[in-house]
Amino acid sequence: MRAARGLVVAQFDAVTRARRWELFREAFPDIDELSIVDLGGTEEFWRHAPVRPRRVVVVSSHGTPGRVLPWLDVVIGDPTAHTGAYDAAVCDQLQDMTPEFASAVRQSATRYWVRSASVRHADLQRLFPDAVLRRERRGGFTVSRIAAKPR
């Protein structure tokens, strides 16, 4: 019984991730032309992504720095202190949103995608007033919130 339940949850999660990538592609239809900075992300997220940006720089406090793939680099450091100019900033699975982190997202790129399961809708709206906010729902419940500024 436990194995069957785990399989159902895994399939449900896979459907949720696939739908999230559809939303991402809708927000950034030119993804293959963009340079992306992923603040606090992982290389694995992009290795398995069904989208392939022109370039991705992952800025994280852990991992192995360097060129992972011809289009994917990892930089070790504080995501809020990273500087650079990119076409879009991405932050997926954000646990705690601070004004400093929101500022880092907006300073890195004019376009962005921020997703969080723990940050309240009103807080995302306050921190990203120019964003389109979406609720990601599963089984009738909000499981995460997305703040996106596609243009």
Rank of each mutant, 00 (worst) to 15 (best):
T16F: 09
V143D: 04
A85E: 14
R55F: 12
A89W: 12
P65C: 03
R115E: 15
H48P: 04
I146G: 00
A102W: 03
R145G: 06
T98S: 15
T83Y: 06
S108C: 05
A14Y: 02
R135P: 03
H121F: 12
K149D: 05
L94W: 12
I36A: 10
F45P: 03
A81G: 10
L127W: 13
G40P: 01
E44P: 00
L72E: 02
R54I: 04
P29R: 03
S60H: 01
A104F: 02
L133A: 01
A49W: 10
R52A: 12
F141A: 15
T42K: 13
R120C: 06
R120K: 14
R5P: 02
R25E: 14
R138S: 14
V75M: 03
R134M: 11
L124C: 09
R111K: 10
S116I: 02
A49Y: 05
R67M: 11
V37S: 07
E100H: 01
R106V: 00
P65L: 05
Q107C: 13
I36P: 01
A122P: 01
G63Y: 01
P70Q: 05
T142M: 00
S61K: 13
A3W: 07
D92A: 13
T16W: 09
V57N: 07
E22K: 12
R151T: 10
M1D: 03
L39R: 11
A18W: 08
G66M: 07
S60M: 00
H121N: 10
Q11M: 14
A10M: 11
L124N: 07
E33R: 15
L23K: 00
T42R: 14
Q125F: 06
V75P: 00
S108V: 01
S35G: 13
V51T: 04
R106K: 15
R19A: 14
W46T: 04
S108Q: 07
A147R: 00
D123E: 15
V59G: 07
T110K: 14
Q107D: 15
L127H: 14
D87W: 10
V8C: 02
S103Q: 08
R134T: 13
V58R: 06
S108W: 04
D30G: 02
R134G: 05
P53F: 02
A85S: 15
W46K: 02
W71D: 12
M97K: 01
R151K: 10
A10Q: 13
V68L: 03
L94C: 05
F24Y: 01
T42W: 09
